[in-house]
Design a protein around this nucleic acid. Structure first.
Length: 291
DNA sequence: AGCTACTCCTGGTAGC
DNA sequence: TGCTACCAGGAGTAGC
C-alpha cells in the first residue's frame, strides 16, 4: 500500500508530465472518489486551470492550480494509481476519475478498492494543517521527535501511524522502523529514552531514503510505479510480512500480532515486550481501601 | 486522552 | 469446479 516512498515515486514520475498542462475536462466514474465540494463546484475550479506544480506532502500527491483555483490532492490509500495517458491508450475497468489535459493526454486515477480520494481544496491548509512534520525534513530533529513522542502516552505502533504526529508512515515502514530500532510496537511512548528516540529518528530516515531509492515496495499485485515497474524495497524487508520466518538478525521466528487493528510483525528477541509498568504506591493506596 | 470497533471496498485465497 | 468466509488496510468516526 502506498506510503511515503511509493507516493514520492509516483510524484516524481507524474509531476514532470503534467506540470504546465491545462485541465480541459473532468470525467468522474465513481462519485465518492471526488471530495471537497460538489461536482459542479470542483469542475468549475478545475476546467481551464493550469497545473503549476506537482509535489508530495505526507501520503498526498498535490497538484497546485494557483489562486482561486486552489489545489487538487490525490490520496492513493490502498490501491489507487495514477497514469498519464495518450488518446490511444485505454484505461482499465478500475478507472474512477480522469482529467482531460491539453495536448490530448489525460491524467487517469484508477483504484480497485475505491478507498482512494481525489480532493479539491481552495487552500491546502484545510487538509495539511493538522499533519505532523515530514520525516525527512530538517524540521524533524531528534529533539523535535522526542517532544512529539514523549508528550503523549500511547503505544508506539498507533502513535507512529498517526499522521498528526509524523506524516507519511504506514504499516510497512512503521514495522521496519520499530524492528530496526529494537523497540516493541506495544511499548508506550512516554517511557522512551532519548537514545530510543534517536534510533527511531535515524532508522526511519534511513529506511525511507533507501525505499525511495528502490522506488518503494511491491509485494502483491497492487503497487506499481506509474511506469509499471514494481518497487524493489520489499526485498530488503526485515520485519514486514516475515512472520513465521527466521529473524535476519538473530534467527528467532518472527511473529505477527494485531495492534490497533493492524497486522504487526515483530521479532520477540530483537524487540522484547516491555515489562508492564508497576502501579505506583499512590495509585495502589488509593485503589486499595474497600468500604 | 487513548483505546476498540466499525465503515468504506474488492480481489485473492483458504477451506470444504 | 464452485461456493462461502475471511483477509488485507488508511483514515475517519463513534462510543467508552
Amino acid at each position: 500500500m502506498p506510503e511515503l516512498p511509493e507516493v514520492e515515486t509516483v510524484v516524481r514520475q507524474i509531476a514532470p508530465r503534467v506540470e504546465g498542462r491545462t485541465i480541459r475536462s473532468l470525467d468522474l466514474r465513481w462519485a465518492r472518489t471526488l471530495s471537497g465540494g460538489s461536482r459542479a463546484t470542483i469542475e468549475r475550479a478545475l476546467v481551464g486551470a493550469r497545473i503549476r506544480r506537482g509535489h508530495r506532502r505526507a501520503k498526498w500527491i498535490v497538484f497546485e492550480l494557483g489562486g482561486e483555483r486552489g489545489a487538487l490532492l490525490v490520496h492513493l490509500r490502498m490501491t489507487g494509481r495514477l497514469f498519464v495517458r495518450g488518446p490511444k491508450e485505454a484505461s482499465s475497468d478500475y478507472l474512477r476519475l480522469s482529467l482531460g489535459l491539453s495536448r490530448g493526454e489525460r491524467l487517469d486515477f484508477e483504484d480497485v478498492r475505491k478507498f482512494g480520494r481525489v480532493h479539491w481544496c481552495r487552500d491546502t491548509d484545510e487538509v495539511f494543517g493538522a499533519l505532523g512534520p515530514e520525516p525527512l525534513s530538517d524540521e524533524l530533529t531528534v529533539d523535535a521527535l522526542y517532544a512529539r513522542l514523549t508528550s503523549r502516552r500511547r503505544m508506539l505502533k498507533p502513535l507512529l501511524l498517526d499522521q498528526t504526529v509524523i506524516a507519511g508512515l504506514g504499516n510497512i515502514y512503521v514495522d521496519e522502523t520499530l524492528f530496526a530500532s529494537g523497540l516493541h510496537p506495544m511499548q508506550t511512548s512516554d517511557r522512551l529514552t532519548r537514545d530510543d528516540v534517536a534510533r527511531i529518528h535515524d532508522n526511519v530516515r534511513r529506511i525511507l531514503r533507501r525505499a525511495i531509492e528502490c522506488q518503494g515496495s511491491s509485494f502483491d499485485v497492487f503497487y506499481r510505479t506509474p511506469e509499471g515497474q514494481p518497487g524493489r524495497f520489499q526485498d530488503e524487508f526485515l520485519a514486514y510480512g516475515r512472520d513465521g520466518r527466521p529473524c535476519r538478525r538473530c534467527g528467532t521466528e518472527l511473529v505477527k500480532l494485531t495492534i490497533a487493528q493492524r497486522g504487526t510483525h515483530v521479532c520477540p528477541t530483537c524487540q522484547p515486550k516491555p515489562r508492564r509498568r508497576r502501579a505506583s504506591k499512590k495509585r495502589s493506596a488509593r485503589r486499595a481501601p474497600a468500604r
